[in-house]
Amino acid sequence: MSTYEKYYVPEQSRFPIYAATSLFILVMGAASTINALGQPDSMSKYILYAGLASFGATLFFWFRKVVQEHLAGLDSAQLNQSFVYGMAWFIFSEVMFFAAFFGALFYVRTFSVPWLGGEGEKGLANMLWENFQSTWPLLTTPDLGAAYTVPEKSMSFPGWDKILTWLPLWNTIVLLSSSVTVHMAHINLKAANKNKFNIWLGVTVSLAIFFVFLQALEYYEAYEHYGLTLNSGIYGSTFFMLTGFHGFHVMMGGLMLSVMLIRSVFYNHFKPDPHEHFGFEAASWYWHFVDVVWVMLFMFVYIL
């Protein structure tokens, strides 16, 4: 069973306190910047930038150290297993983060919007705005746009005749393909085809960038042509928060995969043995997770 005379317990490290301090600067800067929105001469944003830069730098050097320790052979199979469990539980925490936003979406679609429209057991809520009728996607607001900017169009399925110009479909195709390509990369890595691994991983990263580009295009369309914004009531709120956090996670996952690509191409890291490429495997898990979230989004935000 376990042999942990070899379990690597690092000596004192400066990384954690640097990370905590820079995280503190980052959030103080973020909160001050947000509170000072609309005051263009506020200096708060420089605190935010300083926090971002120092936090990013700390993480970079921290991860670099972990990679170096691995290359120096300090990590046992058991420590590797700790990373495996750690990544799995981290992804579970991310699942629960998205669960909060999906939960909000289900709640407004099933309960609060119908109730405000006079349907269901708490339809009494219609007395607040008697002219409001419940629909989904909600292209108006209960106060009929008094405090919100009402969109002209939603992002939902536009009908079969317009399907080829419907961006979310292409987004789905791009992201699902990238899950396949990252899996192809993994298969080739295990088969010791390093070149093919690099190529497939490179294709995956390109697809990630393409996805983010398409998503940006969609946001541009929404803001410029549909009048759909964060300020468009609960439909816009749930749409942008769900797709926005998903897009942010795509960028994070894409960043992880890019780092793996650089490590593989320029530093020749990763070998077929699972213990020798968990960094890549963790990033690919994360990528599959991001993909599953998108499938859920496609179903519940765009189609149903």
Binding site: I34, L37, A104, Y107, V108, F111, S112, V113, L116, A125, L128, W129, L138, T141, P142, D143, A146, A147, Y148, T229, L230, N231, G233, I234, Y235, G236, S237, T238, F240, M241
Partner: peptide
């Protein structure tokens, strides 16, 4: 509070009970 969404505001279709 800061970016105009209406998760917890019934006027925009959200719900404080949410």
């Amino acid at each position: 509070i800061h970016f105009g969404t209406s998760f917890f505001n019934a006027a925009g279709g959200g719900d404080p009970v949410l």
